[in-house]
Design a protein around this nucleic acid. Sequence first.
DNA 1: ATGAAAGCGCTAACAG
DNA 2: CTGTTAGCGCTTTCAT
Lengths: 336, 336
Amino acid sequence: MTVVAKSTRPKVVDVARHAGVSTATVSRVLNNNPRVDPEIAERVRASLSELGYRMNSVARSLRRQSNSVVGVIVPDIANPFFTDVVRGIGDALRDDGYMLMLCNSDDDTDLEASYLRLLSAQQVSGVIVAPADSLRSDLTELTSTGVPVVVIDRLAGTGDFDSVVFDNRTGAAQLTARFVEAGRRRIAHIAGPERTFTGSARREGYLEALAAAGIATDGALIVDSDYSEEGGYRAVRELLASSTPPDAIVIANNAMTLGAIRALTELDVDPETIALASFDPVPWSTSQRYSLVVLDHETMRMGTEAAALLVARIGEPSREPEIRRLSAGTVAVFAD
Amino acid sequence: MTVVAKSTRPKVVDVARHAGVSTATVSRVLNNNPRVDPEIAERVRASLSELGYRMNSVARSLRRQSNSVVGVIVPDIANPFFTDVVRGIGDALRDDGYMLMLCNSDDDTDLEASYLRLLSAQQVSGVIVAPADSLRSDLTELTSTGVPVVVIDRLAGTGDFDSVVFDNRTGAAQLTARFVEAGRRRIAHIAGPERTFTGSARREGYLEALAAAGIATDGALIVDSDYSEEGGYRAVRELLASSTPPDAIVIANNAMTLGAIRALTELDVDPETIALASFDPVPWSTSQRYSLVVLDHETMRMGTEAAALLVARIGEPSREPEIRRLSAGTVAVFAD
DNA sequence: ATGAAAGCGCTAACAG
DNA sequence: CTGTTAGCGCTTTCAT
């Protein structure tokens, strides 16, 4: 086995010596400062590559008092919705030279708070966070220390931040109206938690569409659930236990939709008698048995918008907080 | 709108002054150094919280020449397999006080290389990487600068690293044998790229099981594919175009399995006539129409093992590289 | 047990 | 256009 000499990384001073210039000049070359004699710059670059110089970003960050790292906190990285958002963020920020520090809060405000603290300690340039709990999540720790923050998916209760959210109300209304037009009348709703931003907005949209169509709302057709697969499963079992079961269900998120499909399959419900509509991408789903439409949210766009907002704020920390509401989206027929 | 004073963060020197001690003492308290007078330590802690001190990890990292950050590079964060692995890594490393810097190489060796460079510049304590291309991925950049590396999922071609891989050969053999025992005889295989570590191993396992059962291999039953959803879809269409179609298919990964199911559904193949087996978690899949078994790999364990290996190497950089081969896993009946 | 002081690697005034 | 120099905030010998 060959023993590789732990070749100590060359530093700017080594490069400077090698190129016969000062460290300042090397630093200028490193930062593409235009006022360096092209010939000297070339010599420095030669030394740079000859010595195999590698920047120490930690030192640079300390000196510059800013880091090219952005923190991202999501409640569940396994959820396709958030993976898409994160991809959007990553793609957009890479162009600006930022790296991502991705954290999974697991929907736990304590864990979230601890990540917030860690990110702040890491002197990240900014943080994009999908709050675990829009009411209890505490972002003041960051804002008080002047770290730029962008909130996504759910609006944060306290304070005003740059935010990117979907127009969930209109989206839900769209899905519901679609069923109405298709002649469905017993349209149920498996709702997300009332206290969540998305949950309450989607419920409102559902109710609004029913009202607009002149269909009386039936309390028995609205099941409060919790955004979990299991919750969706239980909700469907509850809805179908009724003597007058629904002929369509608007489901407030992707995980519950999977649970719902599982329940329908298990109960062997005739696909002709029921139609489903859901939010958020469900890319790994393959049930082609039950009719399912999903609201195509352009999820990655939420990420790119958030990134743009963050970059804008980093550039101008005192700008007014801006809330971007992304249009409801288009209905995508997923299976029929 | 209230203007929040951009309260400049207190530094150790501020705390020291406030507590009437030296910066060294504050630092010792910060690091739980036992040889500090308990009374003084208490006083320092009081100042710490009174002033709302927040550690600047960048400065600490520069001084300590080490960072409590670990880089993780995966080819596709949207793949449930990798999300699970990342969760495993995250959970395990959080206990050791590390944060994760997650990068998505998008199966692109160039992007991967650039992340490798960035992570190295960030002075991360170590890197866990699932190489985009086990042959062309270049990890020497890291190893030459002494950054601990753990390779997961696929073995890296050049050099020997700490690695964690599944026993893919045995796993594929297990799935295949299961079909044989169930009386199936025309068992097909939708294979991953031959040059990939997992692809070739799974193919070998499949062939091995057939040989062990004394079943002649039929070239027409083996379709080379590319691990993509679309690839799985095309493979099934190809297999079913035959006059003697398979009665079972061993599919080399989760994405191709989804494509396969889509094709079967589209062709409206009788579920009784075909059975599927797949690798990797497919948690968001909900097809209960076709019989599907998957190899339960304990995916998160790959993450925790990788984390353990990395921590071990950080602690003892000169230890011999170790390759952990995780047992094939148990067959999980996913739908029947 | 505590403090003084040096210095991690880099950048940005400031001079020249 | 280039060099000198003073730190960024923290930790850690080395004295005391």
